[in-house]
């Protein structure tokens, strides 16, 4: 629950197209990305978006492919909103919000075909690489969705896996001294637009999130959309929905560049 005073403050700022932290409606908070901070993970990244802090870790192991995609690696995203991140989060299995976040990020990564899963097949139908992306929220100040998506992308871009080979007995052997990067086809960006009152704004902080009517989370690969999720208890007009898409579209390059810079992707 938010105080009426705070709500009034936010709405008044918005009425002159301002935010209480002096941002414009289409400004993202300061982004800090740190990669490779978890030595025991195969890939990791911590993203700070304003005061929001989230960490994504990648772990890989050899597993069995899904029966309908015998020649493709497996990508699984899981998210935990632990009590460390917010006074409103409780311990226990992921709630609907954490499950939704993980599934939305999963669809964005999968549909953007960021990781070439075909190249992660070792023995068709028998052995493939399984990539686990685990997201842990550490401090919740709004927009965990975009911060976690960015952390997942950065962790995947910097992840390395041992070289796998098949010996004469048909067994999979791993060469842990020869680690290589994941096969990457492109870098997606996930952007959430929130509707607060009659304004559309990006990267909502927690207070803005609490009084928002609805959200539209979009993942882009290049200039195409590959995943959308409308969230929130109120509706968006069709015209607002299309405006959200166009607002988000303009931010793709900025976010992709931030991730590329932090991960060094595309430089070698």
């Amino acid at each position: 629950m938010m105080s009426k005073v705070r709500r009034k403050q936010i709405m008044e700022a918005l009425s002159s197209n301002k935010r209480t932290d002096d941002r414009g409606l289409e400004d993202v908070r300061n982004i800090e990305i740190r990669c490779g901070i978890v030595p025991n993970a195969d890939g990791s990244a911590e993203v700070r978006l304003g005061k929001t802090l989230t960490i994504a870790g990648v772990k890989m192991n050899i597993g069995v492919p899904f029966p309908d995609t015998p020649d493709m690696g497996v990508l699984i995203v899981n998210a935990e909103f632990l009590p460390i991140a917010s006074p409103t989060f409780e311990p226990g299995p992921p709630d609907e919000n954490a499950i939704e976040l993980a599934r939305v990020i999963d669809r964005g990564l999968r549909r953007s075909e960021m990781v070439d899963l075909k190249q992660l097949c070792i023995i068709p139908g028998k052995a493939v690489w399984e990539i686990w992306v685990d997201i842990h929220a550490l401090n919740h100040d709004g927009n965990l969705m975009d911060a976690s998506a960015m952390a997942s992308v950065a962790a995947l871009l910097t992840a390395t896996l041992p070289k796998a080979a098949v010996n004469d007995k048909g067994e999979v052997t791993l060469d842990k001294s020869a680690r290589q990067k994941l096969p990457i086809k492109g870098v997606p960006a996930t952007i959430t637009v929130a509707k607060v009152g009659d304004k559309l704004l990006i990267d909502p902080c927690l207070d803005e999130e609490e009084i928002a009517d609805a959200f539209l989370t979009m993942t882009f690969i290049g200039d195409k959309t590959c995943s959308i999720q409308k969230r929130g208890e109120k509706a968006l007009s069709i015209e607002e929905t299309l405006r959200c898409v166009n607002i988000a579209r303009k931010k793709v390059e900025e976010l992709v560049n931030a991730v590329k810079e932090a991960t060094g992707y595309g430089k070698n």
Binding site: R111, S112, I228, Q229, A235, L236
Partner: peptide, 27 residues
């Protein structure tokens, strides 16, 4: 999902690649 009389969208999920023009057409 929408409330047709109010022309408001209450559910929208996209799973797959569409250009923005295709998205507008699909909506």
């Amino acid at each position: 999902a929408m409330m047709p009389n109010r022309n408001e969208v209450t559910l929208l999920q996209l799973d797959g690649v569409l250009s923005v023009e295709e998205l507008e057409k699909a909506i």
